[in-house]
């Protein structure tokens, strides 16, 4: 066995770094949330639960949460269906398979906010190519960034463009790691492609699918940068996600104490929602084999 006297040399530097850079600031946030720190009064005083009481009745905060969850729902459903579909198509040998694979990975590698700047020119109502292409099919110009419905759709389209590639790479890697034996058995049983998919591929992929969905859920709930560059939360506050609102309240308006309390509420709800989602999905997809660690 390895000499265990050395073990702390390996683990401790990273663990301490993480505690110092993430856990300590988080505790500091909890303390801030109990203070009235703002632009006019930048002091760490103690005002009890006032910020939290105010947060409960802050309609804009809860609206931003609703917007976020609706956006995340749309994005993840599309990304999963498209990503899984593309992965299935490129799983077996395909002509120019490498070309397609590289191409399909590119979006997840490029800077989201920079692409959002490019997308903004694409969605431009009169000068952009999207409405131009739509007009070839006789579809009237869509006010992409000035009406709330289309603006919401624009954010979802960009997210799907960018992150379907992530679902794709995870699910393709999963497909490529599947064992061969169940397929041979299915072939001997005379199962067609659809039955093989339903009874072999889908169940075998369940843990990987669940992992991919949860990772995407975590990452997409941070959605903010695209919105910053594309719509600034508008029109009105129709595309305002919680992260964007936290940024406005905290670092634009400097309502430090209040924003800290919103952050804590947001984080608590996120963790609870993720746990419930992970539990129920693992029960749904994997049956009684127990929860999957991600």
């Amino acid at each position: 066995m390895l000499d265990s006297r050395y073990k702390h040399i390996f683990l401790l530097p990273a663990l301490l770094a993480l505690v110092a850079i993430i856990i300590f600031p988080l505790i500091y946030t909890v303390r801030l949330s109990l203070s009235g720190w703002d632009v006019n009064f930048p002091e760490l005083d103690y005002i009890g639960w006032d910020n939290y009481a105010r947060a409960i009745t802050d309609g804009r905060f809860w609206d931003s949460m609703g917007t976020l969850y609706l956006m995340v729902l749309f994005c993840i459903v599309f990304e999963y269906l498209l990503g899984f579909g593309l992965a299935l198509l490129l799983w077996k040998d395909v002509r120019a398979g490498r070309f397609f694979r590289v191409l399909f990975i590119v979006p997840m590698c490029v800077t989201p906010v920079v692409m959002a700047v490019v997308w903004r020119t694409i969605f431009h109502e009169t000068l952009g190519p999207l409405n131009d292409v739509l007009s070839w099919f006789g579809i009237p110009a869509v006010p992409w960034l000035s009406k709330s419905g289309p603006a919401f759709a624009a954010v979802v389209i960009i997210d799907v463009w960018q992150w379907t590639s992530f679902m794709f790479i995870l699910l393709l890697a999963g497909l490529m790691s599947l064992p061969r034996e169940p397929y041979e058995a299915a072939q001997i049983d005379g199962a067609g492609p659809i039955r093989t998919f339903v009874h072999v591929t889908f169940p075998l992929m369940a843990p990987i699918t669940l992992g991919a969905l949860i990772i995407r859920l975590i990452e997409s709930s941070k959605l903010m940068e695209t919105i910053y560059a594309l719509t600034s939360g508008g029109p009105g506050s129709s595309t305002e996600t919680t992260s964007y609102l936290l940024y406005i309240r905290g670092l634009r308006e400097f309502q430090i104490g209040y924003t800290a309390s919103l952050s804590i509420i947001y984080l608590a709800i996120m963790i609870i929602a993720l746990t419930i989602f992970a539990r129920s999905m693992s029960r749904l997809m994997i049956g009684r084999q127990g929860p999957v660690r991600v």
Binding site: L32, K222, S243, L246, G250, I256, A260
Partner: peptide
């Protein structure tokens, strides 16, 4: 979320 850590 980065937005939570931004203030501290």
């Amino acid at each position: 979320p980065p937005a939570v850590l931004a203030i501290p």
